[in-house]
Design a protein around this nucleic acid. Sequence first.
DNA 1: CACCCTCAACTGGTATGATAAGTTGACCAC
DNA 2: GTGGTCAACTTATCATACCAGTTGAGGGTG
Lengths: 246, 246
Amino acid sequence: MSKPAFSAVSKESLSDSVYRQLADKILRGELPAGEPLPAERELSETLGVNRGAVREAIKRLQQARLVAVRQGGNSVVLDYRAEGGLELLPSLLVNGQGQLDTAVVRSIMAMRSALAPDIAAAAVKGGAALADELDALLAPMRRDGDLRVLQDQALAFWHKLVERGGNIAFRLAFNSMTRTYTQVWDALRLVLQAEFRDLDNLGAIAAAVRRGDAEAARRHGRLHVEIGRGALEQALDAMEGRQRLQ
Amino acid sequence: MSKPAFSAVSKESLSDSVYRQLADKILRGELPAGEPLPAERELSETLGVNRGAVREAIKRLQQARLVAVRQGGNSVVLDYRAEGGLELLPSLLVNGQGQLDTAVVRSIMAMRSALAPDIAAAAVKGGAALADELDALLAPMRRDGDLRVLQDQALAFWHKLVERGGNIAFRLAFNSMTRTYTQVWDALRLVLQAEFRDLDNLGAIAAAVRRGDAEAARRHGRLHVEIGRGALEQALDAMEGRQRLQ
DNA sequence: CACCCTCAACTGGTATGATAAGTTGACCAC
DNA sequence: GTGGTCAACTTATCATACCAGTTGAGGGTG
């Protein structure tokens, strides 16, 4: 997760680029709900791409429920707040200029706090086998104080919990949320460091999993993520305070 | 929601049909992760549609993270459990033959239980204005015992809570989940009737919103949805027990 | 005037066929 | 074995049709 030695070279296709541009305009409010989209032929001309590429992009906008399409009439922009699914979250976190939306950050942390306890509780069905694997993940965290390691292992810890919990809704939501905050993975490292260093609650979760104690797992799960939530809340307050002073 | 007098005639486009077929095969495990997809030209020939329709469908599969595409090589199926977002939930609830997956049902109910209390708690910021609107939604429920009315108004009640809570993550997740269980809206009516008739907790939430009492809202939110969860759990146990006897 | 019909000029939906660009695996030279 | 070559794949993009549904302006009709 942190500091990959190499990363895949990005080769964005034309339709990807068109999709990104249009989705950005919609999510930033530049194209408000109800507004008709330019015609496909017009878009393909102004963007200098083939109509097929535009159509592929619009199909994706349709799937994300950002626009409604019907033959004969222009496609129209929908209200993503009312129609969109959780998969939009990553695109909402950082707006076009790369600034992150603090309201979205708070939202994510609130959702994380709501889900984490139940994710931990659901994982107790994994029993001793899961507990062993969780302890194995904790080992390098105890040995090595490197924040990067702590952060990566903590994510792996929760990933395993949600993977073994057998709750597909939790898992899919976890995927969407993970994709959201890995965008700001580096920035989170320092802000959430108190949580990453909280090995006690993670260890307590592993122990609770081992003895099948769902309530203890839930309790320690809540305690653990609330550490990060509090820290982030403080950081955001400070950030917004500074902005107001400017 | 319930019993619309008329509903829009379905006009599925070719690419929609192709997408649905492929997504179904993947979600049902017929095309396991790692398996290469047939070539676009081959698919377009076997399905009897032009290649553009196939490409639009595959772009959507790519967006849903059901497949990975790269120029020059075949597209390959991904593990949706590890990659997919919450927007897949509706497609997972009912498998190809229209049978519903009880594990998915349980997952959804667990997620609902995890989110509902915090949704109620977040809504208290709406204050008296929101409380008035909530009471207005409860009025027809108290007047009219019709289960259909109760069900629709209860959904509207939660919709308003999540809409006013100002938490975009909650809202998008709520959208995904709503789309999931409106698929079995009629079947849920009887199973969850005890919850729909529980106006006491809904009224208590409205009252808590009015006086800004987040903890009370959270508590009554939890109590309310646990009624439905328990009822559904019983129904599923009975159903699965019957299946085992067959 | 109000109503309704017609129709041209839009819109998206589908089809065909060509070319560019990247991947794969067999083959060969060293 | 290592590395290069190349033919036969694949997806990516393009151009150009034509089909099908929507819309709004115009003109009739009562």
